[in-house]
Amino acid sequence: MSELLKVTDLAVSYGSVPAVDGVSLTIEPGELRVILGANGAGKTTIIKTLLGLLRPRAGQIRLDGQTDLLRLRPHEIHQLGIAWVPEGRQLWNTLKVVDNLRLGGFAEPDKALVDRRMAAMFERFPRLRERQDQIAGSLSGGEQQMVAIARALISAPRLLLMDEPSLGLAPKVVRDVFGLVREINKMGIAILMVEQNARQALGVANWAYLLETGHIVESGSADEIGRKASVQAVFLGGHA
C-alpha cells in the first residue's frame, strides 16, 4: 500500500538538546493514527517538523512516497493538503471567527469554493455561525476548538495533524471533540493525532505509537497498544 506520509529516522534538536531522535512512522490514506506521549516526549516537535516550522537535524519526510517535505517551506507544505489543529487552539484571537475560518482558505484561489466550505462549516457548527462576528479570543474553550478544527478543514486537507485536541477542555467537550475526530476521519481525511488522553485517543485511532523522551518505544494497532501493561500503567491509570 502506498503511504500518504512516511517519516524515517527523524531527529530534531533545540540547540544541542535533542527533542526527537530516530522517529519513524507512516500513515496511509484515510487512516487515523495517534502518537501517545507525556509532556515533553516530543509530540509537538514532530508535528511542527512535519509542518516545516522546525528543521530536523536528520531524517526524511516524504509525502505520497515522493515529495520531500524537508525541501519545502511551511506555506508550500500546506498547499500539498496538510492542515493543522495546533496545541491549545492557537486561534488568531484578535480576529473575528469568520476571518479565522477565511484565513484557513487563504491559499485556495477559488474563493467561491472557500465560501461554500465555510457555509458547510457553519451548517455543521451552528454555534460558530451565531458567533462568526465575535473576536475569536472571546469564545469558550470548546467553541475555540471548533473554530480551530473548522479552520483546518476549510482547506479540504488530505492529512490533518492534530496536536492534543483535548487539552484544557471540559470532559463533555472532550467527548464531543473525539466524536468529531472520528467524523472527520470518516470523511476520508487521514489524521495524525498526538495526545495524552490515551483512553479517548485509542478509542478512535486504528494505530498507535508510544513516544517516550523522543523515541518511539512501542507501536501497534490501537487495541494492541491499549492492552499493553506499560500503557495501562502510564496512561490509563491501571495497575502494572
Binding site: G52, W84, Q90, L103, R151
Partner: peptide, 12 residues
C-alpha cells in the same frame, strides 16, 4: 499575532 500558524496555513 501568530507567524508560525500563519505560515502553516498557507500564508507566504
Amino acid at each position: 499575532e501568530r507567524p508560525d500558524v500563519a505560515a502553516a496555513f498557507g500564508i507566504h
